[in-house]
Design a protein around this nucleic acid. Structure first.
Length: 306
RNA sequence: GCCAAGGUAGCUCAGCCGGUAGAGCAGGGGACUGAAAAUCCCUGUGUCGGCGGUUCGAUUCCGUCCCUUGGCA
């Protein structure tokens, strides 16, 4: 019983692998509450485009971190870790099982292994660094990082400007390097026993499901949803949701509806592939064959927990 | 039926005045700590339409056949 209370379950997988439904079944069986681990479903008023679980599923189990932020606001891994960490503690204090479900690999890892304490982004500093990069050449910042934090530089590709800038930003703001700070990370795996289940289906089937899900989005009115969103000032992060760009191009008359749809399918397939890369890299995960009913999958998972 | 242009990687096409071929896209793999549904990196052997001929050697030249597209009938 004590053991039961110190456990956190993760049900993850690529988009369209069916994790939302499986998570609900597991929650019903194990007295759990679901905590979404999804960088886009945190946004409200973007239900269709982010594939948020429908009202049927939402009613069957308590869900957290879905639709909690307006699209005008930025969201990031650090905020997720903070909110999710708090959520897990409170679910456990209520004697229930936290089930983290979603497909954002970074968020999952940051939650489990921790995210080192560091200052939020500094837009003006980033602008300055970006300008330096374009004026003095792509390798300028990379060489600079090589001098102050050779370990991090060695791990990054010279073209990976985004990460190079972040590394320099952290150093400028704190006087300490990312490499040093990483040792300060403390995730929930120190407190809780984490079991990570990855829902896996054959690639071809996965892609077929992705295509079908995109078709369904259009039937559910994504175009209308994006039209509504266009009237607002989407944050940098919310605006990056798959589909926003493709559908906006259509609404502007730059492409046909069919082309926009195909483009979105293609980009979503690529995204699913990238998600899998993340899970494959984590040796702690347990792979679950997900080419069957959600109830069956849930049964296998609950069985594995005994 | 005639004329013309083509048939080269899953797709769109380059290329070779003869020495067995290369881009983009797709596909595959990897990375990832405050943008992560983002971003970055790596990855191209395919009867060069079929069959003959010329040649030391043909995907490249010649002949022929098949197919596609456009034009003329």
């Amino acid at each position: 019983m004590r053991d039961e209370g110190r456990r956190v379950l993760f049900i993850v997988g690529p988009t369209s692998s069916g994790k939302s439904a499986v998570a609900v079944f597991v929650a019903e069986r194990l007295n759990g509450e679901i905590l979404s681990c999804d960088s886009m479903q945190v946004y409200k008023d973007m239900d269709v485009i982010t594939h948020a679980p429908g009202s049927g599923l939402l009613r069957r189990a308590v869900h957290h971190l879905i639709g909690i932020v307006p699209p005008e606001e930025e969201f990031n891994a650090a905020r997720f870790v903070e909110e999710a960490g708090r959520g897990i503690d409170s679910i456990i204090s209520r004697g229930r099982l936290p089930i983290v479900a979603g497909g954002t690999g970074l968020y999952m890892k940051a939650l489990i292994d921790g995210i080192f304490p560091s200052p939020p982004k500094d837009e003006s500093l980033r602008r300055e660094l970006r300008r330096a990069a374009s004026e003095k050449g792509r390798t300028y910042l990379y060489r600079q990082l090589g001098e102050i934090d050779p370990e991090t530089a060695a791990r990054l590709h010279p073209n990976d400007l985004r990460r190079i800038i972040r590394a320099l930003e952290v150093y400028r703001l704190t006087g300490r390097t990312i490499h040093e700070k990483k040792t300060e990370s403390e995730g929930i795996s120190r407190k809780y026993d984490c079991r990570i289940f990855v829902l896996n289906i054959p690639r071809k089937l996965l892609y077929a499901r992705v295509d079908a899900a995109v078709d369904e989005m259009f039937e559910k009115g994504v175009v209308e949803e994006v039209k509504r969103l266009q009237k607002r000032r989407l944050s940098l992060t919310a605006g990056k949701a798959l589909g926003v760009g493709e559908i906006t191009a259509f609404l502007r008359g730059e492409t046909s509806l069919e082309k926009a749809k195909e483009e979105l399918k293609k980009n979503t397939r690529k995204y699913a592939k990238r998600q899998l890369t993340w899970f494959r890299a984590d040796r702690r995960v347990e792979w679950i064959d997900a080419d069957r009913d959600a109830a069956d999958i849930a049964e296998e998972i609950t069985g594995l927990l005994r």
